[in-house]
Each structure stands twice: as C-alpha cells, then as structure tokens.
Design a protein around this nucleic acid. Structure first.
Lengths: 188, 188
DNA sequence: CTTGGCTATGCAACGAGTTGCATATGAAGA
DNA sequence: TCTTCATATGCAACTCGTTGCATAGCCAAG
C-alpha cells in the first residue's frame, strides 16, 4: 500500500484536494510514484474513514466544491511506522528493454524510431528537472540554513536527474547498436 | 499485457517449462521484468489456449512431468506486431524516494540503515552483471561475428550495469545527506 | 527417520491499478 | 452559439499482480 504513504507525504508537505493531489502525481512526487485520479479518490476515502486524514469541505464560487484533506495524528503515526519498516529494493519493469531483446526475432531497425522517441522524452524530463533544481535549490532563493525537508527533496531530485542522464546515455548506446545491426543485416 | 511479450521473447530465446521461465524471471529477463510463478503459469495457460504457444508433455524420471512450451506462428506474429506498436516511456515507482521525502516528517537518521541495505543490494547486482558481461560478452567466448541476438542482449545488460552504477552513486549521495542532517539536527 | 530443500504445477482469494463513463459548472475561443 | 478546456468528484467493470496454500516425489543432511 505504498500509494497511501505517498499521499501522506504529499499531504504533509501541503494539504490539498484529490484533484490537487492528482496533479502533484503528474509532477513532483509523481516522478517517483504514479497514480491516476481514480486511485487517489478511492484511497483518500478509505484513509479518511480509517482516521488517517481529516476533510474540510470548501465551497467555491463558480466551481464545484473542493474537499481539502489534511493528515491527522494517526496518519502521521502510520507514516512514521512505515519509515521504520524495511522495504524491498525496487525491481524494475522496463518494457523497452524487453522489446530490444525481442527485436532479435524481427527487424531490429523497427525499434529505431521508438527508441528515438523515448530518448526525447527522457531528455525533456532531464531539462525539466534541471530547471527545477536551478529554480528551487541553487537559485537566488537558495536555502539559507540547512532545512531537512529542502535537503531531502533536493537529494531525491538529484536522483531523478542522475536517472534521466543515465537513461539518455544508454538510449544513445542502444541507437548506435541498432544502427550498426541495421547496416550489417539490411533485412533478415 | 507486457508479461505475455516478455514470455514470448524468453521462449523464443529458448523453449522451456513454466518452472524454468519462473527461474529466468529471477535472473536474466527478470532484471527488466519481474513475475512470480503463479502469474507465469496462469498466462502460459491463456497463451496456449489462444494459440500463441504449443505444449509438449515431457515425462521425467523421478520428477513430476514437465510441460515444455514453444512459440508457434501466431505467437511470433503477436510479438512482431507488438514491436511495431509504440509504448509509454516508463514511469518509475521508487518507494525509497518516497520514504526519503517522508523522512522530513520524522527523524531522517532512521533511514540510514535502510539506505545502506539497499546500497548493498544494488552493489551486489552490479557485481553480478559485470561478472555476466565478462563471461558472456568479453571473455574467450567473445562473439566472433556480429550476432544480432548477442549484441541486443549485451546492450540491455549494459543498461542494467549503468542503472546499478548510477543507483549506487546516488545512494551514497543520499547517505551523505542523511548523515549531514543527523549531525545538524541530533533529534528533532 | 524426519526435516528441509529442489523440481514441478496449480487453485482461491485478495489487493492494486487501469479504463471507460458520468456529472456539474464556468470561462475562453471558434 | 457551440465546442472545448479546466476544475472537481465519483461509480463500475475489468485486468494485473501478490499471497497463502496444496500436492507430489525425490534427495541429502542431521
């Protein structure tokens, strides 16, 4: 139930509605944990009935009502307990890697476009992360004192940056390999 | 249904039983796609009834019977079709990153042991990959001619190596950050 | 001689995640 | 004016993935 914990972290960073959470899961926390709005609304409801969150109805002008969720005592305790539990080191699911191995049984050249497209996405993400880092951690608003929250968000962002950099470099390696095979085996 | 495709690739590389596939998903292809034996048996049954695979019962001495699956025509066609379809660039689910951000709301020091443990796992995986690379791709049995299958398996392995290297370096960064926060805030 | 481990397959139940659809309103643009 | 976009929430049905358990025989260690 890691979504529950991701929601606790996000709501502790800043209370918000299901809709707002859904948007955060499209950026920020979403770089490390994805979720759709359906999932979020369902889990929020359960967490509230379990007493981990409190809700506040915010009637809005010219908009549907908003339900703002905040973490309450038991929610904070649940997060703290989870932090003390060990978790399994991630096991990746890299569909593109499966495709690349599968390309041995077809024409490897069909993957070139696909890999180029992925490279573009990762390269864009890298640029986006770097811009965020400049804005939030090394710009004029640079952290004055050592703030734990800031430092931890920064180190996670550095992880994202390292991941995207590594991925772009690897996809270049993949492209070079595919092109080499293309010239050797014009079409198997 | 990417498991289906991962199974097609693995069975094209070498036919085998559900049990054998389950073990391959603990190594090799499993580095990029995980699956439990339950999932595998269930999907194999479906794929066979869909006509993508054929089965051969192999009675064995002093062992339960084995069912050896092979890819047949329609299976190969399904793989080929999948290779031509675009896939979504991976979205990561990095539970440890969520924990690190969550540590801002508790004592960051509680994560040190956990991060050290993860670092060890990734460092072991890296060593394992490097040994495999030496054995299969750069050793005395180095590829004579340019074999597409070999080259593609190698580039995927290089991706795994790059990933583990990057992760170990990042976890060192995380540890340094956690330790720094520990000395600054002896206990919030 | 019994316990545990390895091969080999599978059911049943549950929890997690996805997809399609539905509803309501106001603002901006064609 | 009509459509589309953005806010805001939710149900229902489905597939995917995990966990616990069951069976069955052989082998090796204690």
């Amino acid at each position: 139930m890691a979504l529950e914990h991701a929601i606790l972290v996000s709501l502790l960073e800043k209370p918000g509605s299901g809709y707002e959470l859904a948007r955060r899961f499209d950026r920020s926390i979403g770089y490390f944990w994805t979720a759709t709005h359906q999932q979020i609304y369902r889990v929020l409801k359960r967490m509230e009935s379990d007493g981990l969150l409190s809700v506040r109805g915010l009637p809005q002008q010219s908009r549907p009502d908003k339900k703002e969720y905040s973490v309450v005592g038991p929610g904070r305790a649940a997060l703290s307990q989870w932090l003390h539990e060990p978790i399994e080191p991630e096991s990746i699911r890299h569909e593109l890697a499966v495709k690349i191995r599968g390309a041995a049984f077809d024409d490897p050249a069909v993957l070139i476009r696909e890999v180029e497209r992925h490279r573009q996405v990762h390269s864009d993400r890298l640029a986006h992360y770097l811009a965020g880092e400049l804005r939030d951690f090394t710009g004029p608003t640079a952290p004055t004192a050592l703030d734990a929250g800031q430092e931890l968000q920064h180190v996670v962002l550095r992880g994202g940056i390292a991941y995207e950099r590594m991925t772009v470099a690897w996809l270049d390696d993949v492209l070079a390999t595919l092109r080499l095979l293309g010239t050797q085996h014009p079409h198997t």
